[in-house]
């Protein structure tokens, strides 16, 4: 398989690479003769998807760019161009930087936990054992519940008085009783609030990471591992040199998709803490929502929300570069 066709995508194709290695000359002949026709065919296939996202994401996105450089307010149909004023104003807000920092912390910490939990779970599920299907079914449940509703359930689990988590910890003697200093107020203590939000996100999505990784593990061709065994590699060597490079791209893509969804989605933080206490768990989308919609400064809100994009771009490019480098 050629390198060109391996670029990008959740690329699980080690086996395919082994199986399909058509002679390059034959391939060129096959495609070469129908070049124009192939292009028309290809672009026709591509058009519906491209048009859909162009019209319903691209165009609104451009409109948001306009909002971000205007003084648009809700309820006021006339907006003036004010240049980068909204970005400057956001830049000067303390809260903006807190939200930026929290967003990064959220992103990184959640990603670390998700990959750790996801990898170990995937390894376990890779084994053959009785009841595997049942257990697999149980662990994917968090991912299948509608996010808004499961977050509300967590809100009740984190309740300052009736927290079921505290009840258990208290019975185990790990914390004091209600009203004592060691009784954690999950959503009320600054360091705990952000952690609580991250925990919900990790709980919801680590099964997904595990499934994606499981697919990745399963795709590592047995021949490759066997070959490594014959070469006398130890388990860890095999893991380090054979398995990791093969699953890494999948892990990255899975994480990236999930992270993007996590960060741009405001429901976890919005429904749990509204960004509180103070601003301790405020992340950019929540801040943008509060300023843009609740307080009505559409322009300022759009500007803040747009800061999410540069935050996500480096992640995207890192992943894409990685994918290219790891082709084989």
């Amino acid at each position: 398989m050629t390198t060109a066709s391996l670029r990008g995508g959740p690329e699980p194709t080690a086996r395919a690479a082994v199986v399909s290695a058509p002679a390059p000359t034959a391939e060129r002949a096959w495609w070469g003769t129908h070049s124009a026709q192939r292009k028309i065919f290809g672009y026709t296939l591509l058009a519906p998807a491209a048009l859909y996202v162009l019209l319903l994401v691209g165009a609104p996105f451009l409109f948001s760019l306009w909002l971000a450089v205007s003084d648009a307010n809700v309820g006021d149909p006339v907006a003036r161009f004010i240049g980068l004023e909204n970005f400057r104003a956001a830049w000067e807000m303390d809260t903006f930087w807190i939200a930026m920092r929290n967003s990064v912390v959220f992103l990184v910490v959640a990603a670390i936990f998700k990959s750790l939990l996801g990898t170990s779970l995937a390894f376990l599920l890779l084994q053959n054992f009785r009841g595997k299907k049942l257990i697999r079914g149980l662990v994917v449940i968090p991912f299948t519940l509608p996010i808004a509703i499961s977050v509300l359930s967590w809100k009740w689990m984190y309740d300052s008085q009736f927290s079921v988590i505290n009840w258990v910890l208290s019975r185990l003697g790990l914390i004091g009783t209600y009203g004592s200093d060691s009784w954690p107020i999950w959503l009320g203590q600054p360091h705990l609030a952000l952690a609580a939000c991250i925990a919900v996100n990790v709980w919801r999505t680590f099964p997904f990471s595990a499934i994606v990784l499981l697919a990745g593990f399963t795709s590592v061709p047995l021949e490759v591992i066997d070959a490594a065994k014959v070469d006398g590699c130890s388990f860890f060597q095999r893991f380090r040199h054979v398995v990791v490079p093969m699953i890494f791209p999948i892990l990255m893509i899975g994480l990236l998709f999930d992270t993007v969804f996590t960060l741009s989605d405001l429901s976890v933080v919005y429904l749990l803490t509204q960004g509180g206490p103070g601003n301790a768990s405020k992340i950019l989308p929540v801040l943008a929502y509060q300023i843009g919609i609740q307080a009505g400064n559409l322009g300022r809100g759009a500007a803040i929300a747009l800061f999410l994009v540069p935050l996500l771009l480096p992640a995207l490019f890192l992943v894409l570069r990685n994918l290219k480098r790891r082709e084989y």
């Binding site: 984190y158 309740d159 300052s160 008085q161 009736f162 009203g179 009784w183 107020i185 999950w186 959503l187 009320g188 203590q189 609030a193 803490t273 509204q274 509180g276 206490p277």
Partner: peptide, 15 residues
């Protein structure tokens, strides 16, 4: 108690 930092509109009802 510090729980008031986590309260929303419904918490004092339950309290």
């Amino acid at each position: 108690t510090p729980e008031v930092f986590s309260w929303d509109d419904a918490s004092d009802n339950r309290f």
